[in-house]
Write a protein that binds this DNA or RNA. Sequence first.
DNA 1: GTCTATAGGCCGATAGAC
DNA 2: GTCTATCGGCCTATAGAC
Lengths: 173, 173
Amino acid sequence: MTEKQEKILRAALELFAQEGYDASSTSRIARRAGVSEGLIFRHFTNKKGLLDALMQGMNQRMVQLVEPILGEPDARRCILATIALPFGLEPEEYDYWRLQYKLKWQKNARPAVLNNPLYQRLTQAFEQLAYPQPAEEARLLVHLLDSLAVALLRDELPDREAYHQFLRRKYGG
Amino acid sequence: MTEKQEKILRAALELFAQEGYDASSTSRIARRAGVSEGLIFRHFTNKKGLLDALMQGMNQRMVQLVEPILGEPDARRCILATIALPFGLEPEEYDYWRLQYKLKWQKNARPAVLNNPLYQRLTQAFEQLAYPQPAEEARLLVHLLDSLAVALLRDELPDREAYHQFLRRKYGG
DNA sequence: GTCTATAGGCCGATAGAC
DNA sequence: GTCTATCGGCCTATAGAC
């Protein structure tokens, strides 16, 4: 991956995340990246190829984030780590996640990598803690996680820390 | 509102909700509605006018849905009605709500009509029920509501009824 | 008056040629 | 890295059918 290719991907990510895929023209991406427009097509074939490259990177990052939770043997810690997840996202990476949600609605993409294994691990965790309806509890938590990420990405959550504390306590932190 | 105008709006809603606003051309909308393309511009000025007309209808519908909850004096019933809300959406109206979420991400639109007054009413309800952190509880419930709607619209919620029951019980139903 | 059919201008975007 | 062909989308305009 050369330096120019990275610049292109970076510019594409910023524009896609801010304006949406359709609304971002390859010429603006090229200008923002400081390269000629043709270079985009040389390296990524077409506009869709750009998106594919970005999505591949996003999937890797997701797996990387969820892996430690899946590997956590202690049920309580597993749940708390799940709650902490959206709060721990780096602001530099926000564009990544914004793009995820944009695509979820614009192109009906499903980031199944994240949700399914996590859901199963959480169900198990709630079972271990003898919750009466572990599957539903797990679903609730996944839903909560999702809205939480949305609120953070859209800057719609005042009192971040108070809310995090509140959730930790709810799950016995 | 003539029959043709309704056909146009209906076609536009379907396409916008499925493919997104940008990706839906006026020519396809006209074809789907079975009218000539020019008619769209005669009635709605431009493509944006189409969207505006749809959003006006959506806002009215939202107010209509939330109003009875805001007017409910009993705290417990107020909370349960909130939970029931997404489960009570008519499948025929799903495109409406899908469009809402698409716009939320595509155009950063905020359906504040719904969330703010509802959030305040719920805070009050949790206060009345002597929850230790009513504001956070209200936020949690609004988040939950949001994810729930998303899951229903994207057909990602098996066991609808079991889950509804589960939530009702959690809030003392 | 409402609508269709058609023709076309303008513009920007993708993509490939050079 | 530049240049340009081609396509499609938005919108206007007009002539005429129901």
